[in-house]
Write a protein that binds this DNA or RNA. Structure first.
Lengths: 194, 194, 194, 194
DNA sequence: TATGAATGAGTATTCATTCAT
DNA sequence: GATGAATGAATACTCATTCAT
């Protein structure tokens, strides 16, 4: 019985933590670190503000862990591309889709905020510096190279093109709901061979 | 005698106000309304915090006036395009250049922040609602139409294309210094006839 | 379980609020709105300044609610007179006593300050305008009339006499501790039939 | 010629000083020391706020000098009564009139504020303590005594009656414009022999 | 675990006062 | 003498965080 109870508690613990985290991602993404008040997170999560501190040490700590999660997720998604059985251009399309996808956007937005704006905790700066755009470019290079060889991807300096491409997609993703989201096919014009 | 003195005072007044405003635009653009502290603005402007309140009623009031200025400037720049003697595709290139230009970026960033993020004062929401993307699209439509007729601009629904194009350019601009800025020629692939 | 806890919290809430309110009334009465610093209130109430804002939105809001309370209390006290079984002149004496009573004085002082001095919030001005002296006069008129009929109250225009009488009592009350407080019997000379 | 110029300057100096002083008395009387902003005084006086400091060292210094002036004036007015050729009750009536007179009221109000309310500078406290009500009572005693002997003034303890009387008149005076001002004849009921 | 009362560091804002012109 | 730009101490208010229950 104590075992059961413990398990239940554990389950509640995880559920609550997830509940607060989900609320936090969205609000951090939309308002940034200084614009996000603990009360916004807890009221969106439907719990008291005191409860926040049962699950997280500080607001910054949560922000840091979210950014870390975002970095890891994004690296992983790129890694997953290699294992797909699809043509290079298809992989690029899938990546684009994934980045613009509603569910992923908040995490990317968080990364963006960490990368550019706010006064972020030192730990976040470190994290971001360890994963500069160049790393993403490097990981994507094989896919683009194969695409170029196959004649699917436009010619030119690939390192530059991938960086530019990431910039554009990130930018679109960051803009959020105030702007229309372009069709993926249209965006593909940037990399497809004419 | 009083005339001269008055002029001098007027000059000092305008200079100081400008000095504080310039500091504020950059910081607001980078950190947003809640992330910007008065002390950041005044220390960057090299004045005491007290002086801020000699020139502006509140932090929000300054933010509002800057957003208003940004809205007006951006509308004006689009208006100016019509008067140029250049081909449509050239005009689009010039607009792109202008938007990505370093000096204009902070203002666009401000607009972006006002449009998406922060808890902005009601007055700003109003302002932004009065100038949705659609208005910009509408103003640019004649240029794109002419471009399409001349075979310079790709085919398809122009209203949609312009909106998408603005989204991409805005996104790139908003990303700022953490990302590489794409070459304009490369971005033009999105609208040029292949 | 939750029931009990809720009640306790409710009790603490009310007690603290009362504690702060009591401290505030006295200080507002003595020093007025601009002369009263939050720190005066909270240190007199023995709580941190932060707690003040847990219970009240702003200093002004508290002032407003206190003035409202004062208005209501004073109207009520006058209303209560009618239900007493006492001769008219006795009722007037009781009213006088009540107004000069130490415990009621701060509230009247607040009313006085709201009526005359300070830059008060619009809401207070409204409140005060809705309860001019004339309303008090009107409510007291029946008592004085009966007194005059019975030969207890001096002759003459009663509306004027009551207004004057209220002025004198209010004035005495407002002066506070710096001046000797006259005996009630002596003050009654103003309205008693010689 | 330099003499003349000096005189003129002197005249301007005195005029400006008077102009500011007059504005200050009224505002201090109405709003008290903390409720009075330098800008209120100077804008009412129609001068720049900087000019205030050509004529007065600090806001407090002006307040002190005004209270001193008020004390002296009030003592003087009471002293003047003795030299009048009028019956005692007439003198009391004249005193009452003088105190309630519009022009004198602000000074009395200042005294009142100094006596009761605000956090006043030590110097003011001293001044006020040196001139307690008792001194006024003492100075008025001969007049009331003569009045009692002549049968014009009601019987009873005169020291007490005078103190009470001063309290009532001060109170009425202090109330100011929010209340009706009683007729002097009616107030005289308090001291006249029935 | 859950709540909300309580605290205090940090910020925005006001306003007396100084000073160059 | 006169003005208003400039400063900084004082004050109102916010919000992350702690803690008793």
């Amino acid at each position: 019985m104590p075992r059961l109870k413990e398990e239940q508690l554990q389950k509640i613990y995880e559920e609550r933590k997830q509940q607060i985290t989900l609320a936090a991602v969205k609000i951090f993404a939309q308002r940034g670190l200084p614009g996000t008040k603990i009360s916004m997170i807890t009221s969106k999560a439907g719990v008291s503000h005191g409860l926040f501190y049962h699950y997280f040490k500080t607001k910054e700590e949560l922000f840091i862990s979210l950014v870390r999660e975002a970095v890891e997720t994004s690296m992983q998604e790129i890694g997953n591309l290699s294992h797909l059985t699809a043509s290079p251009i298809e992989k690029i399309r899938i990546l684009t889709q994934g980045m613009l996808d509603e569910s992923g956007a908040p995490y990317f937005m968080l990364l963006h905020r960490a990368r550019n704006f706010e006064e972020v905790p030192e730990e976040v700066s470190q994290l971001i510096q360890n994963y500069p755009i160049e790393i993403y470019v490097e990981r994507l290079l094989p896919i683009f190279q194969e695409g170029q060889q196959r004649g699917e991807v436009a010619g030119g300096n690939l390192t530059e093109m991938i960086a530019n491409y990431l910039t554009v997609i990130s930018g679109v993703m960051v803009l959020g709901s105030g702007y229309p989201t372009p069709q993926i096919d249209w965006l593909m014009r940037l990399v497809e061979k004419k």
